[in-house]
């Protein structure tokens, strides 16, 4: 459904390309993992898909095709129609991802307000449904709360609810669990798995932790300094890493985890 062809992104104020020649594809209903160290260009890749590149501050070439339509060079008006409706995004820090002065419920519905002609009641009903789908306890109560009244884990669920309320086809998850503690992290991973299974939504799951990716994704791509160095079935990459960088990534995972999770 999504195909990235030879993506190059270079910020004017940097010497090195942030992304240099990445090609990737995501199939319908698939969760693709994207791992790599800090600064390897994972977020820039995701931002390119989401149309959030600061276009005036960088040069970009290549193609990003969503069902054959190029997103990378589409103009703002076109993008505005596509985005939100087809693609949802969840960022790393749940706290800063929400408008501090808007009720959670209103933020979950925002995308419906922009893209549909639903009435207020219908929007509210869909928001509550989405909030239930992400297993937020007592959606009715959470609907009227403000971000500072929720825990990190609840906020991240609310963010996911906001991203899926309009039933987009692709969800971009930029380290959605990194800021959360381990138990909550596991719960969010389970939730993502469930959403993927039940609604067939495709996902790009970004992480710097290969072990987390392994729990969620059948296929994984590894980036280093803007370059895609390895791509393949997660288990294969995990057990037979080809590239020296991937080998180091795997070696960095404690042995205990590696054994425990053997299929």
């Amino acid at each position: 459904m999504l195909e990235i062809r030879d993506l190059h992104v270079k910020f004017h104020d940097r010497d090195r390309e942030a992304v240099s020649g990445v090609s990737l594809h995501i199939e319908d209903g698939e969760i693709l993992g994207l791992v790599g160290e800090s600064g390897s260009g994972k977020s820039v890749t995701a931002m390119s898909i989401a149309g959030l590149l600061p276009r005036r501050q960088c040069d970009y070439t290549g193609e990003i095709l969503l069902d054959g339509k190029d997103l990378l060079h589409a103009d703002r008006a076109e993008l505005r129609k596509l985005h939100g409706k087809e693609i949802g995004v969840v960022f790393q820090e749940p706290m800063s991802s929400m408008d501090p002065l808007m009720k959670i419920g209103e933020q979950v519905e925002e995308v419906l307000l922009i893209h549909t002609k639903l009435t207020k009641e219908e929007r509210r009903r869909m928001a509550l449904e989405a909030m239930a789908a992400v297993e937020l306890a007592d959606p009715e109560a959470v609907y009227d709360k403000y971000p500072h009244e929720l825990s990190g884990g609840m906020l991240q669920r609310a963010m996911i609810a906001a991203a899926i309320v309009i039933k987009p086809r692709l969800l971009l998850l930029d380290e959605p669990t990194t800021a959360l503690d381990v138990t909550i992290q596991a719960q969010i991973l389970d939730l993502l798995k469930k959403l993927n299974r039940e609604s067939g939504i495709s996902m790009l799951f970004i992480s710097h932790n290969l072990n987390v990716v392994r729990k969620l994704c059948r296929r994984v791509a590894v980036m280093q300094r803007g370059v895609l160095v390895e791509e393949g079935e997660t288990e294969t990459v995990f057990h037979h890493p080809q590239h020296p960088y991937t080998q180091r990534l795997v070696a960095a995972i404690p042995t205990r985890c590696r054994k425990e999770d053997q299929p």
Binding site: A50, G84, V111
Partner: peptide
């Protein structure tokens, strides 16, 4: 981020 996601939502 919240402004970015509003932008993304169109």
């Amino acid at each position: 981020n919240y402004v970015k996601s509003a932008r993304l939502m169109g």
